[in-house]
């Protein structure tokens, strides 16, 4: 692994991109690889990967205004729906397919994950952990659909349609025979491994078939 891409770069990346899951992902992705980011937003992570790690970095994004900003910064992004867009690609077209904070918004998450592992040699999946203690407490004490820092929406306007926890994802990976190459759990700015299903706000998995 390139020295610059070790954990030492994580705080720097976080400063640059403002998102700790991006920091972890940019650390996972090896230099000079082909990367596809699903739901890439403004293309910030892709631009960073292209410039710093010389990746062939591309993205898919549904929002026209975000696609515009991404293309304006020179990233090859196209407007489309994640649930369908992957179907067109040939097998193993990319080294990494990234799905950051979007799995819970897809219509058919399992199909998307299977497609990711068809089109990419590796899949990097980051998602907010529905098992986090704050979610459990919010539900227990309010008796209503949990509304927390991680899941800030009202039940009627939330883009999240498939909630999952760290344990749920691990179980799915076993069931589908995916190899979990790495698992990283984030809480605030810290990474940790203690009781991740309870303590992790965001989970990042690197999986392979």
């Amino acid at each position: 692994m390139n020295a610059a891409s070790g954990t030492a770069s994580a705080p720097f990346v976080r400063q640059l991109l403002g998102r700790s899951d991006y920091a972890i992902i940019s650390e996972i992705v090896e230099p000079n690889t082909r990367v596809l980011d699903l739901g890439c937003g403004d293309g910030e992570l892709l631009q960073w990967l292209a410039e710093r790690k010389k990746c062939d970095a591309r993205g898919i994004e549904i929002s026209s205004s975000r696609v515009q900003r991404a293309i304006a910064r020179g990233v090859s992004v196209y407007q489309g729906d994640i649930d369908e867009a992957l179907l067109d690609y040939p097998d193993s077209a990319f080294d990494y397919i990234i799905l950051s904070q979007t799995l819970q918004e897809t219509k058919e998450p399992l199909k998307v994950l299977r497609q990711m592992l068809r089109v990419g040699r590796n899949a990097v999946v980051a998602f907010p952990n529905f098992g986090h203690w704050s979610v459990r407490l919010a539900h227990l004490f309010s008796g209503r659909a949990p509304k927390t820092k991680l899941f800030p929406y009202n039940w009627y306007d939330s883009p999240n349609i498939h909630y999952l926890t760290v344990h749920d994802f691990e179980e799915l990976a076993r069931q589908e025979n995916w190899n979990v190459e790495r698992r990283i759990f984030l809480a605030g700015k810290h990474t940790g491994t203690l009781w991740p299903n309870l303590m992790a706000e965001t989970a990042v998995f690197l999986i392979r078939k």
Partner: peptide
């Protein structure tokens, strides 16, 4: 065009402007 390029893994950016 975009789908054809994608199916052959060509580099393509696409945007539908309002």
């Amino acid at each position: 065009v975009v789908r054809a390029l994608r199916s052959r893994n060509r580099d393509v950016a696409y945007c539908e402007l309002a």
